[in-house]
């Protein structure tokens, strides 16, 4: 196994991680600030991808597609928050899980009604498609480098927003004590809607960006949602920094595990059996990571309080 291959795989893991971060950031804010488990977050990701595919198909502009995806996901998020979720803040987690699971089904079948059962087409714009040669002779798709850049830029912006701005102070205060900031005169319901819109827009952005290199189809959000939950549990609920570190850890573990575990097994097993056993173990690797982190730090890496 050459160094070039290993570097390429690390880049792949990093790219996967930062895209996960876009999902996990919204989820962790919503869970951390509002105490709400939102299973429908994956549906917002799907909405982003579908709207991006539709707008790109109509206008031919990828930038416009991304803007529309973020706007549509944010609008869907706000509607969901105002119509459904607002009634659930006081309810216990089981009610929230049931209601937001129902939303998954509604969004999935609704999308199928509007766009049909066949996957949609969304392609990388030609200016950023194809491979580039990095120092050391590594050929790597330019689009994936752009994804890493966008992900890190969003992380930096969110970090600034949370630590340096007024709304960031309110979000952090909301995480620590919801009742108290309401008593201090912050309009908590507006704050909740704003956080929800922000989280939804990030999910929509992730859907649109990832949709260009994957299949835009109904149900594409749920596998990502599960990984995003793993990320926020590892990172600590409510922590943006935790979500970033957690995402990159999960991205690297998943990608590198899939490559190196079968190779490792081949040292003492027959190749076919090693391949199969290695692949099986690799798909468990992130959950093993989650278990290990939780044993070491039960509230996650950067968790402030017990979840």
């Amino acid at each position: 196994m050459s160094t070039i291959l290993i570097i390429e795989q690390v880049l792949n893991g990093l790219q996967f991680g930062v895209m996960l971060f876009l999902m996990a950031a919204g989820l962790t804010l919503i869970f951390g600030v509002m105490g709400l488990i939102n299973l429908a977050h994956g549906s917002l990701y799907m909405i982003g991808a579908f709207v991006a595919a539709a707008v790109a198909g109509l206008t031919g502009s990828f930038l416009l597609a991304i803007a529309a995806a973020m706007a549509a996901a944010a609008v869907a998020g706000v509607l969901v928050e105002m119509l459904v979720i607002r009634r659930l803040y006081a309810a216990d987690h089981l009610d929230q899980v049931l209601a937001t699971f129902a939303l998954i089904l509604i969004f999935s079948e609704g999308t199928r009604w509007v766009f049909g059962s066949f996957p949609l087409f969304l392609d990388i714009p030609s200016e950023i498609s194809g491979p580039v040669t990095l120092p050391g002779g590594i050929e790597y798709p330019l689009y994936r480098l752009v994804l890493i850049g966008i992900g890190l830029a969003v992380a930096a912006t969110l970090g600034w927003l949370i630590t340096k701005t007024r709304i960031g102070i309110r979000i952090r205060a909301g995480e620590n004590d919801r009742e108290m900031i309401a008593a201090l005169g912050v309009d908590i319901s507006k704050l909740y809607t704003a956080i929800f819109a922000l989280g939804a827009a990030l999910a929509g952005l992730a859907g649109a960006l990832v949709g260009a290199i994957q299949s835009v189809q109904v149900g594409m959000g749920e596998p990502v949602l599960i990984l995003a939950f793993v990320v926020i549990v590892i990172g600590g609920i409510g922590s943006i920094k935790g979500a970033l570190i957690g995402s990159i850890l999960v991205g690297l573990t998943d990608t590198l595990g899939g490559i190196f575990l079968p190779e490792l097994f081949k040292l003492f097993m027959a190749p076919a059996a090693a391949q199969s056993a290695g692949a099986s173990l690799a798909s468990m690797a992130i959950y093993i990571l989650m278990g290990a982190v939780l044993i070491w730090r039960p509230t996650g890496l950067f968790g402030a309080r017990a979840a």
Partner: peptide, 21 residues
């Protein structure tokens, strides 16, 4: 090379890198 991927996997960057190598 012979690889089993995860069922439902959406990202094949790692496999494609192995194909290249």
């Amino acid at each position: 090379g012979e690889i089993f991927t995860e069922l439902g996997q959406t990202d094949y960057a790692a496999e494609i890198a192995q194909i290249r190598a």
